[in-house]
């Protein structure tokens, strides 16, 4: 019995793509199989439980943002108000933190792309000495606990005069994007079929033009996902930004930490919603790409 384990080599990538297509082409077969594995009741229960688990806390957070006050044991707040929104929007520093979050997220994503994408291309399409060691180094150094790393980096930054600087914060946030920006695009480049590139080269197309009109367009959807994940990693980073950037550079998650400690729960809820909006917009944009199998390929060591 031959089992095309396409997951682990770029060469048989076609087999991997065809599997979902089989289901799409023959939905009836899929439905029939369902009948055995998941009965109707179990299916409904599973989706409802998943919905409650994932959405329950988030939905109630949104409700809290419009409540005057809401304490146990009331199931729902009795009085509603918009005043927390005004409080939050009036608090100095909050809008400033939104600005800094985005300035850093764009800068970090761009720097990360410049640093990592050429390497990702090399990891994905070339074989050279030390490749696997390089990929493993990028992953393994990410396994050192962040706070321990930041304490040691602080010593380094003091001597390099990077404490409290814009560059310092960019470097700290850049570190949390390196794995996604190398591993995932490397998988995307590896998934481009060799035959297409050979055809282009046989037609006398130069290597640069082949790259820009064949390789890059095919890899683009997955690379966009890597950009989004890097952007999110930067938006999410709180601990390092706090240690290096305070007091000049306070981003949204750093501000959120202060709020959780100092503000009433309702005001925190409002800020939480504001902080989630940009991420949700990204979710909408990325939804159709994120489930590509190449994204999953990104976590395979080649």
């Amino acid at each position: 019995m031959s089992v095309p384990l396409s997951t682990h080599s770029g060469v048989t990538d076609g087999a991997m793509r065809s599997a979902p297509a089989d289901i799409a082409a023959n939905p009836a077969a899929g439905q029939q199989r369902l009948g055995r594995l998941f009965s109707g009741g179990a299916t409904g229960l599973l989706v409802v439980a998943l919905g409650l688990f994932i959405l329950g806390p988030l939905v109630l957070l949104v409700v809290a943002a419009f409540a005057q006050s809401w304490f146990y044991p009331s199931v729902f707040p009795s009085h509603w108000t918009l005043s927390w929104w005004l409080t939050v929007l009036d608090t100095s520093g909050l809008l400033e933190s939104v600005k800094w979050s985005f300035v850093f997220a764009f800068t970090v994503t761009a720097v990360s792309a410049v640093v990592c994408l050429p390497a990702a291309y090399a990891f994905g399409r070339k074989s050279f000495a030390g490749k696997r060691l390089m990929m493993m180094t990028i992953f393994a150094t990410g396994a050192f606990p962040k706070i321990g790393l930041y304490i040691a980096i602080a010593s380094l930054f003091y001597s390099l005069h990077l404490m409290g600087t814009f560059t310092g914060v960019v470097i700290i946030q850049l570190l949390s994007t390196l794995v996604v920006m190398t591993w995932i695009p490397a998988a995307a480049f590896a998934a481009v079929p060799e035959s297409l590139i050979e055809v282009a080269r046989d037609c006398g197309v130069g290597p640069l033009r082949t790259f820009f009109s064949v390789t890059l367009p095919l890899a683009r959807p997955t690379i966009i996902v890597a950009f989004i994940l890097a952007f999110l990693a930067s938006l999410d980073e709180a601990q390092g930004t706090f240690l290096i950037g305070v007091p000049t550079y306070v981003t949204m998650p750093v501000q959120m930490y202060n709020l959780v400690a100092d503000y009433p729960a309702e005001a925190t809820a409002v800020f939480a919603i504001l902080l989630t909006v940009p991420s949700l917009v990204l979710l909408m944009v990325a939804r159709k790409h994120i489930f590509s199998s190449t994204l999953a390929q990104g976590y395979h060591l080649r």
Partner: peptide, 8 residues
Amino acid sequence: PMFIPVVI
């Protein structure tokens, strides 16, 4: 959950 900041 991928798109919700961890603090939130």
